[in-house]
């Protein structure tokens, strides 16, 4: 890991903390404003996107199971256009994971690096 001097110091702190719990040290790191911002923002993204995926998937499964009209429509004979829905269901996970990678690369990693830089 090459996190600079801060990384080494914090790494040493974490190693120490693994042996005995030093509440002051933990509180110092947790209270760091950038640490707080990164963890909070990442947590919001992580759980919102998880909720989005669960809603999309189980919304689809429940619709098929209990109210197929929502998926099939009212046409007497189904046609190939209905296949758009499962195709979108295959596309959704790719889009959501792509979004998270984009956000993490653009923001979380940069913020974490700035925290390292500032402290070192």
């Amino acid at each position: 890991m090459s996190n600079g001097a801060f990384g080494r110091n914090l790494g040493a702190s974490v190693k120490r903390l693994e042996g005995r719990v030093d509440q002051a040290e933990v509180e110092r790191i947790c209270a760091d404003p950038v640490f707080e911002r990164v963890t909070k923002s990442r947590s919001v993204w992580r759980w919102s996107l998880t909720a989005a995926m669960l809603t999309i998937y189980f919304g689809y499964v429940l619709a098929i199971a209990y109210d197929p009209i929502l998926v099939i429509g009212r046409k007497a004979t189904p046609d190939a256009h209905l296949l758009i829905v499962p195709l979108l269901m295959i596309f959704a996970p790719v889009a959501l994971t792509g979004l998270y990678v984009f956000k993490a690369n653009a923001s979380f990693d940069g913020l974490a690096a700035s925290m390292v830089k500032r402290e070192s």
Binding site: W45, R46, W47, L49, T50, M53, I56, Y57, Y60, V61, I64, L82, L83, P86, M89, I90, A92, P93, L96, T97, Y100, V101
Partner: peptide, 21 residues
Amino acid sequence: GYDGLLYVVGTIAGWPIVMFL
């Protein structure tokens, strides 16, 4: 036909969970 795709949709929907969590 279509029902075969439901299986596919279920298996790929797990990947975002693996990534996010």
